[in-house]
Amino acid sequence: MLGLFQKVRDGLAKTHDKLISEIKRIVTRAPRLDAESLDDLEAALIGSDIGVETTMRIVEEVRRASAETREVDVVSIARRIISEALASQPAALRTAQQAPTVIVLLGVNGTGKTTSTAKLAHLLKQDGRSVLLAACDTFRAAAIEQLKIWGERTGCDVITGQYNSDSAAIAFDALDAAISRKCDYLLIDTAGRLHTKKNLMDEMAKLQRVLRKRLPDAPHETLLVLDASTGMNGLNQAREFHQAIGVSGLIVTKLDGTAKGGIVVAINRELKIPVKFIGVGEQMDDLQPFDAKAFADALFS
């Protein structure tokens, strides 16, 4: 457990180190904040992927403040605006009134959906819940085998189908199984799809419809898995998935790299979708519930 916290701190420390020290460097060099240092500030904020819009707001506010007083606390302005953007909804997982709670994981290719499914299953298992997995990525080669291996490692049964078969049908069968086996959770891993592909988005909507036929309030969570190293396109991804299917939360993966996941700020600002979990490593237990305050504080402590 201790190692886990260390990992989160280390991961975020990289973000924090760079951004905070960059801002401090700019401010100490030019306490009066001339045009050039404002440009540098802008660059530092952009560099953390928080998005041009949020950056502009911070820079504008710093500019206004510096016109009024000589002493401008750049860090506190930045921290306030970022936490405002992040402080939206509770990050806890929504559960069904009556089991099973159905969770669908979706996202573009290669963000870590299958791995996140496994990690989430592990997290829930640790909590003493029974979990069933559904391998609905019937497109990518060996995706089913990948989830099966994770199923063995986490001790969860995996409902599978044939490659190139209808993923909605597998989801339906899995839901049936989850209900009859009285599982607490059903986690549905789906194929990666680019948000620009209308037909693939329709397929997702169908999966949702089919689940609702069996269980009207399913899925209880539709989580978009987002790679922390994604830039501004992450906002497009979130927007499109949200419009087409309705996203209830984000899982931000690969935060153990140097990636800052700043795109989360932009997404929260525009779409108000809360981050529910963050992935901070390659091991099974490297999935953490997201704490918005801690995240913002870590960025600007």
């Binding site: 952009i46 560099g47 953390s48 992927d49 573009v108 290669g110 790679d227 190293s229 994604t230 830039g231 501004m232 396109n233 992450g234 991804q237 790299g257 140097t258 990636a259 800052k260 700043g262 795109i263």
Partner: peptide
């Protein structure tokens, strides 16, 4: 490399 990579691209 993923075309959607953000500011990290340079470091990578």
């Amino acid at each position: 490399a993923d075309a959607a990579t953000g500011q990290q691209a340079v470091d990578i």
